[in-house]
Amino acid sequence: MNADFITPLDAFTIIDLILMLMLLIVGLAIVRLNDIFAIVMLAGVYSLVSALWFVSLDAVDVAFTEAAVGAGISTVLMLGAMLLSSRTALPAKPVRKWASFFIVLATGAALMYAVTDMPSFGDPLSAPNAYVGLEYLKRSLPDTEIPNVVSSVLASYRGYDTLGETSVILTAGLGVMLILGMGGKINGQLKKKAIDYDNADAQAHHTVLRVVSKMMIPLIVLYGFYVQFHGDFGPGGGFQAGVIIASAVILYALIFGVDAAKAAVPPLVVRIGAALGVLIYGGTGIAGLILGSNYLDYNVLDPHSAPHGQELGIMSIEIGVLITVCSVMLVIFYGFTSRQPDITDKDW
């Protein structure tokens, strides 16, 4: 611990304070509310404010992901589950409230006890900041030629964690498939109806929404690919891009119907994609083994230049991540929509 460092009070501190205050208010509101719709929306707000705070704390990659996953996909899933069940929660019994309060109090006290030995906020020489983190900052460019250190650590130095993370996503997709099914294959008749989205049924949906979304969806996909391939230089990468591209398909499904989406992106393709991404990632690691080095060593992928090999390896595994994340998001979406009556306009 570096005792000399004193956290300055500047404009950033004030922004931080405001954001923290907002988080506290939202958190307490969730505790008090029993209306599930409000709770779900506030949870989305909580994620979004957190994402803002992460930007202020220089964690741009995290902010991006939190906004896309925490505020975006999670909220959509929650809303989907909410539509299938009752809208209000039973208030907790007083006994349970007090018991929970004391458990939380004890846990919080344990953490508060530790605060005095924590490093000062913003200290560049604190234990976490001055050791391996600083080392990554210094070596990322020479080792991998990738300026975004978060990308190089994620994909190379700690690439094995990321393989595990991609597998976690795959496991979740598999779980939703097993628990909810995928709604089966769409038969010929349904498919015809789905593609014929100019019929009277579909006309009931808002025309403006349909036209605008038709223009938006290609742009969203394009942006997804930008995020994917620009991830080496700026915030972004396979996870964010996968979520963005999946959200384009989900938007399409929301406006033109799930069957239309299933006709465009069939469930089988999505299932193959979910597995394929992990196999691409794992296969890149195996390539390292075959070329005579350790698992996930990208240096050997290009015999002439180790950093270039790193770049190749990172690109390859990021594509694997993109495919799995995008596919699993759709597996989950199809799984949930196969269970529920179509969301009608009245529900909004």
Partner: peptide, 20 residues
């Protein structure tokens, strides 16, 4: 420091997997 960012990217993804 990039390390917490990397770890939390993993954490977010694990979180949404559990949620699903």
């Amino acid at each position: 420091n990039p390390i917490p960012h990397v770890l939390i990217l993993t954490g977010i993804v694990v979180g949404v997997a559990t949620l699903a």
